[in-house]
Design a protein around this nucleic acid. Structure first.
Lengths: 347, 347
DNA sequence: CTGAAAGCGCTTACAG
DNA sequence: CTGAAAGCGCTTACAG
């Protein structure tokens, strides 16, 4: 059963192809009666305008593409959900390109999809700046969490949230903390590292930085040895996945959170579901995705779009993974220590 | 700067459009010298064949669409990752449609994308059978986790895994267990419920069924009251997200896993990252996605594709959320009980 | 308000 | 092995 085309509808409705076309794209040019007649027979025939033909004719594809490093990461799947929903609302379909954290694949995906989309949303691109600019020169591009002058961008400012987290930890008596980050290429991680360093200095905390590599649960777990060696009592992680990994690594060693160690994450997607629930900086992932799509689509509608930078504030959400600093075990001080030996050694 | 078209390349290379076209799509029909000449000038001009025009002309889009109920669910994001990667490998781009667990949106997405894709992968469709068949009659469709005669499908058979889980629990001394499922529309949930019921009967366990509604962390947490009321000592959940929710609900009430209660999940994406790590049935999500794409694409290549059903076995992975049944508290039995009172009440 | 016709950038029988 | 030409299904000035 062949798909009905505009010709068939025109013939059946007794009008020209142009009229059928207008009934769908510019009904205000037609008599209500004509519109109704055309739409009616279209409905009856199951006709839907062919997007491909429309795209070739108008030069507008009605599609956008979202390129991201890893859909399996909750931050990006939440972001993708927000982006896709918003694009759908505005009549656009969404391509997904997963670059597997690779700059090269990102480049290839951009090139391959260019002809089929009206614009791109690049979430946390791993591409270097010149290449991003090259693609942006050919097709409208909005980047998320990358601050490039002259390119539309949505930035989730998690700095204040991380600062608040450091203040929280300082207030709880922690003196030595760590920031566990992703590789240098990540704008977000750099931003968070800076906030932690600055806030730590301001509150007299010593701060060590650890690079976990590709942000994953394993990466978090694997850096626990380093954390303990460094003698810190709290860690702020680049995201919740890494934070959860750190908690798992601590649990493996019999350390409890927050009793023995405090952990802070970021994104706040899985944070409420971990055990214990993570204190985390909310990154408003879905909103970031939706805003990026809006920025892109508004730019398309506008002949000379002003380049906008949209900033979303990420605030701290305090849950159960942060608590008072543990009393230092190796060198107990205070007068009660000698008078009250460890109960476990009593027997 | 206008995008170069086939005409420009033809003129510059001193050949016809047909020759340029062939140089890209069927070079074996041309002299190597001609191919080289054409490709050279194309390269120099920055020419890339316009996919949209090609699609209109050939009727082949070079795209597929993946429709799923919720990208934010780890099962589907993992599946999407596998599908997208495989499609890319075979030269296809992937549209994502998130139906938000809604049959209607699924229907709309199918219709809107139909003209732009060569086929669909429907993961756990919420659509009723007649509508799925309607769409399958127009465009090649492969469904995942839905058993529809005559339609290509990939089924993850988690039945044996759930059976193994029930056997495990029975061996650990549990006598009353629960299956916490999703709504009736889910083929997977029905399959799992059947396996649990059958295995429970075979091993003399009493089995209660609880419907958690839309599978989510909250849904899992919310059904804990019902679980405890029902007097069961273990729960098997439709997926890991719900299982994790159940663990959270138990923790809220001061119950420990697996000490006081055992929990089993399914999918095995987040299972290794929860605390305690979940005993779970591996659903091979990424593989399912990749296989579905292969099935679809192989079908496209084949003039009269044989309808295949591809079955993936899901096996049980035992971790820390399952343990011996707790001794029944209200009616302690055994001779030692009176002789040895609870130590905590001693003081 | 509506229609006839050209054109979007390709592909592909059909000739030669 | 290569070219001229029709056609894919729309949209949109241009007339009327």
């Amino acid at each position: 059963m062949p798909v009905p085309t505009i010709r068939l509808v025109a013939r059946e409705a007794g009008v020209s192809q142009a009229t059928v076309s207008r009934a769908f794209s510019q009904p205000e040019l037609l008599t209500p009666a004509t519109v109704e007649k055309v739409l009616g027979t279209a409905q009856r025939l199951g006709y839907v305008p062919n997007q491909v033909a429309r795209a070739l004719s108008t030069g507008r594809a009605g599609n956008i593409a979202l390129i991201l490093p890893d859909v399996a990461n909750p931050f990006f799947s939440a972001l993708m959900r927000g982006a896709q929903a918003q694009a759908y609302k505005r009549g656009y379909a969404t391509f997904l390109g997963d670059s597997d954290e690779t700059a090269h694949l990102e480049d290839v995906l951009l090139a391959k999809l260019a002809a089929q989309v009206d614009g791109f949303v690049l979430a946390s691109p791993r591409l270097d700046e010149p290449l991003i600019r090259k693609h942006a020169a050919r097709k409208p591009v909005v980047v998320i969490n990358r601050d490039l002058e002259g390119i539309g961008r949505v930035l989730v400012d998690t700095g204040p949230g991380f600062t608040a987290a450091v203040v929280l930890l300082a207030g709880l008596g922690h003196r030595a903390i760590a920031y566990v980050g992703a590789p240098r290429t990540s704008w977000s991680s750099q931003q968070r590292a800076r906030a932690v360093t600055a806030a730590g200095a301001a509150h007299g905390l010593s701060v060590v930085q650890i690079d976990a590599g590709r942000p994953s649960h394993e990466a978090g777990r694997d850096c626990v040895a380093g954390l303990l060696e460094a003698g810190v009592t709290a860690a702020l992680a680049v995201d919740d996945v890494v934070a959860q990994g750190i908690m798992a690594g601590l649990a493996e060693r019999g350390l409890s959170v927050p009793g023995d160690f405090s952990v802070v994450g970021c994104d706040d997607i899985i944070a409420a579901t971990t055990y214990p629930p993570l204190t985390s900086v909310n990154a408003h992932c879905a909103l970031a995705g939706a805003n990026a799509v809006d920025l892109l689509l508004n730019g398309l509608a506008n002949p000379t779009p002003p380049v906008e930078g949209h900033v979303i504030k990420g605030e701290l959400v305090i849950r159960g993974s942060t608590g008072p600093a543990p009393a230092p075990a190796p060198a107990p001080r205070g007068r009660k220590a000698p008078a009250e030996p460890d109960p476990s050694s009593r027997k």
